[in-house]
């Protein structure tokens, strides 16, 4: 990472600042952008975690409370609702992960780079 980048953030990060002439607090604009970025990441993370939990606990509840439904046969009696639902939850996990990684690679990393001072 560049010295420039390190300096900009080091100023705001370092807890006891060794240089009294350098401002100890980050710039307000920078703080606002960080807060915004953090909120966006938090919202997406919470939404995706919630979807995963609904999918998984939905599957568990289906198996626990609605055994006949889960045992209903489909596709020429060759598969059950429960098997399809379980496979869907397994496939859901990497799909949700991919959505997050795509967002983070495209937007989050760029914002982090900006906040760190353009490079790094």
């Amino acid at each position: 990472m560049s010295t420039q980048a390190s300096l900009t953030v080091a100023q705001s990060l370092a807890v006891p600042n060794p240089d009294p002439h350098v401002a100890d607090e980050p710039l307000p604009a920078e703080l606002a952008e960080l807060a915004q970025l953090s909120a966006r990441r938090g919202r997406l993370a919470a939404a995706l975690t919630t979807i995963m939990m609904i999918g998984y606990f939905g599957f568990i509840l289906l198996v626990a409370f609605a055994k006949p439904t889960a045992g209903t046969l489909l596709a020429g009696d060759r598969v059950s609702v429960g098997i399809v639902a379980g496979a869907c939850v397994i496939v859901l996990a990497p799909i949700l992960t991919a959505i997050y990684v795509r967002w983070a690679n495209q937007h989050y990393d760029a914002a982090v780079r900006r906040l760190r001072g353009g490079k790094a």
Binding site: T49, F59, G82, I83, G86, V89, A104
Partner: peptide, 24 residues
């Protein structure tokens, strides 16, 4: 039969939680 799938699913679903909340 089917019952094993409950574990296949259960042992995977913690991973997205790690991705979204913990890893970074």
């Amino acid at each position: 039969g089917f019952d094993g799938l409950i574990y296949s699913v259960g042992w995977l679903v913690g991973w997205p939680v790690i991705t979204f909340l913990i890893a970074e």
